Simulated assay, not measured.
Amino acid sequence: DNHYLGGTIMPGFHLMKEAMALKTANLNRPIGRVYPFPTTTANALASGMMDAVCGSVLLMHARLREKVGAGKPVDLIITGGGAPKVVQALPVSFVLDNTVKIVDNLVIYGLLNWIQQQ
């Protein structure tokens, strides 16, 4: 309904990687791949960063669902270069139970919508 509720800001993948490399001993290394139970440092870095992003998405979705009330749908629209990887890392049951869309250039669409209302 064109009402901005607010939202959170969190570090992206590159900032998380940089912080880990600079502020944690022996973690200045390439990241690996995301696994449910990583067994190497490189894979644990990648998996931990993805878990942080997915956890933030799931928490905000749960907050919004609580705010709008039971039985009302809450779609997840995600954008950005890492969006496909984030969606792939979300729990399968969450993706099956909710509408999850990737929309490229979402900020541009929002600005166009705002301009049209002026």
Rank of each mutant, 00 (worst) to 15 (best):
G80Q: 04
V103P: 12
G81V: 01
M16T: 06
Q117E: 10
I102G: 11
M16E: 05
T79F: 04
I31T: 11
L111K: 12
L22S: 10
S56Y: 15
N98G: 04
F13Q: 02
H61E: 09
G12S: 01
V53A: 14
G6T: 09
M16W: 12
N26C: 15
G81R: 11
T41R: 05
A25I: 15
V74A: 01
A52Q: 11
L64Q: 10
S47T: 05
N43V: 00
R29C: 14
G48V: 06
S56G: 14
L111Q: 07
N2E: 15
N2T: 10
H14K: 12
A19V: 06
L22Q: 06
I77G: 00
M49D: 01
L76Q: 05
H61P: 05
D1G: 13
I78K: 01
T41L: 03
A21I: 10
I9N: 06
K85N: 04
L58A: 02
I9R: 13
V95M: 14
P38N: 10
G6W: 15
A52M: 13
T99C: 04
A83V: 14
P36K: 09
I9S: 09
L76P: 00
N2A: 12
W114K: 13
A89T: 12
L27R: 06
V103K: 11
L59Y: 15
Q117K: 07
L45V: 01
N105W: 10
G6C: 15
G6D: 11
R63N: 08
V100Y: 04
L112Y: 06
Q117I: 02
L64D: 01
A19T: 14
A70H: 11
V57Y: 08
H14G: 03
D104E: 12
G32K: 05
G71R: 10
V86K: 10
Y4M: 15
S93C: 11
K101L: 09
T79N: 05
A42Q: 02
Q88F: 01
G71L: 05
L5Y: 12
G82I: 07
H61K: 08
R63G: 08
A21F: 12
Q116I: 06
D51Q: 14
V74G: 06
